[in-house]
Amino acid sequence: MGRRKRVQANVAGEAPARPRATAWQQYRALLAKDVRIELRTREMLVSMGVYAVLVLTVYGATLSQTGNSLDILNVASGLLWAMIVFTSLLGLNRSFANESADGCLEGVLLAPVSRPALFLAKATSNFLFMTAVEVVAVPLFFLFFLAGADVSSTAIWIVLPLLAGTIGMAGIGTFMATMTMDTRGKDVLLAILLIPVVFPLLYACVAATSTALLGVVGQEAVFWRSLALAVGYDVIVIAAAFGLYEFVVGS
């Protein structure tokens, strides 16, 4: 393998030309690693899924006495997003359990890995897992609470705010979870840091979702404006996270 040549190069103090991985290749490798681990252990997916069902169960109890006086359609959007936020918090905490155990994240940082690629890969994997859980939990929510309600035909539009909101949660959530990874009381700390920061996004997404459920016709301006604000939030906050990530993983 050219050991002698390398010794001489060492002695000469020059770096022998070494192949490097591109940021894209590293991103793919990191993403593949996360997905592979998750598919094998299903830890995050199962715990998030179970937690979502538990939240729905709690809803069942809390709404049991409302009867007909509460037009559930009005609060549905809020309930749905509350479930998503809490389930996402759980998932985000778990997503870094692997990295913190055995110092794996440090092993990755040791390599010439582009820090933004690391952030994006983790955020993407979290986004994928959150979406996977939502694909199950949202229809379940509809089944439990909106079966008898007068849901508008435009309800399918909720896919758009769900997407925007999940992207934002995954982005800024991954960022915060990296910070709280090795701290005391990391689960609670993540919630304390994340919820105030995510509040505007939540607000916009709930508005858009609510409009979609009640009927977009006549309310298009509200729907599109809320959606645009959610997307605007995503862009600004994820760009900030992108820029600040090296301070969170570096030293």
Binding site: I172, P196, V197, A204, R225, L229, V237, A240, V248
Partner: peptide, 23 residues
């Protein structure tokens, strides 16, 4: 970490105001 969070907080507050105002 607190420096990073302070920056995020300072960005978030105006966004929060704008969004609650515009919707």
């Amino acid at each position: 970490f607190s420096a990073v969070f302070a920056i995020i907080a300072a960005i978030d507050a105006p966004i929060s105001f704008m969004i609650t105002r515009l919707i």
